[in-house]
């Protein structure tokens, strides 16, 4: 099993991003995803900075993938997307069909990211024929769904043509909107957001009026209120999942990575009371169940 650090979903100062990836280089992560996937106004690192960072990291021998935006609206965002897809060197994670269009035109392989809606084997086959080499399962899908899907890809004779990656740690990206909810939480319009999401390095927690953690506001993205954590479900991924993704929350995510590795066979289960794992078990995502599927 390989381990990947997903793209940083929050808006961090450039120095923090660099420090994180510096530390990541000495971690046991096999794959590093870099790039801005949420909001084009976040420009602590510009297009050329992300590309330069990706190339520097790639020199270390780890696999580096450039993740691209999920919700593209302005023509300028499409232009930026195209320049990433044209880079010719670094593998791209597509999070919108627009990226797949550019990569297909360039005959380049790609990773289908978690924001690509691919829910069945025929969809996978379509993407494979366009150059997909790795599929990151949509976060709302379960182990049962994955098993069904992979069985069907066996029947289609394409199971060996792609890797499977599962989002296994971090706040789940659940929705994208035209509205910036972080700006709204500070009573600002989006056009005058003053990049206030930089003050919330792990997003802004939204609770019910009874204090239950519901959502995490991250700009135009809405995430789960509970941290998703499949560390005690790794056994049930054997033979199904090639790559386990941890979504960076800070340097401590690198410690979690080592704990994940340490519990791959269930030898060191962790206390995860305040997190959720419902989606993997085919129940409401916010729930946690201890029963481990296998």
């Amino acid at each position: 099993m390989q381990y990947a650090l997903g793209p940083i979903l929050y808006f961090w100062p450039k120095a923090d991003v660099e420090a994180f990836y510096q530390a990541a280089l000495s971690s046991s992560a096999d794959i590093l995803y870099v790039g801005e996937t949420v909001c084009s106004k976040r420009r602590e690192l510009r297009t050329r900075d992300w590309l330069a960072l990706a190339k520097t990291l790639a020199a270390s021998g780890k696999q580096v993938v450039l993740s691209t935006m999920a919700l593209l609206e302005a023509p300028s965002e499409v232009t930026t997307l195209k320049s990433y897809c044209d880079n010719g060197e670094i593998l791209i994670e597509a999070n919108d069909m627009g990226a797949i269009q550019f990569l297909r035109e360039n005959n380049k392989p790609f990773v289908a990211g978690p924001a690509i809606n691919c829910y069945n084997h025929y969809g996978l086959k379509t993407l494979l024929d366009m150059g997909m080499q790795r599929w990151v399962m949509p976060v709302e899908l379960s182990r049962d769904w994955l098993v069904n899907m992979l069985n069907k890809t066996e029947e289609l004779g394409v199971r060996q043509r792609f890797e499977v990656e599962v989002f296994a740690y971090g706040y789940l990206p659940l929705a994208y909107s035209a509205r910036c909810f972080t700006a709204r939480s500070e009573n600002r319009p989006k056009d005058d957001c003053q990049l206030c999401c930089i003050h919330y390095p792990n997003g802004r927690l939204t609770r019910s009026q009874e204090g239950q953690a519901l959502f995490t506001l991250n700009g135009i993205q809405t995430q789960s209120g509970q941290c998703y954590n499949l560390i005690n479900d790794l056994c049930s991924m054997q033979g199904l999942v090639d790559i386990v993704r941890l979504s960076p929350l800070g340097l401590e995510t690198l410690d979690w990575l080592e704990q994940f590795r340490g519990n791959e066979q269930g030898q060191h289960p962790q206390q995860v009371a305040k997190s959720c794992n419902g989606y993997w078990h085919a129940i409401a995502g916010m729930h946690r169940t201890s029963s481990s599927a296998s």
Binding site: A115, Y176, T222
Partner: peptide, 8 residues
């Protein structure tokens, strides 16, 4: 691209 409903 909204999974809020399945989350809940």
């Amino acid at each position: 691209r909204c999974y809020l409903s399945s989350y809940m």
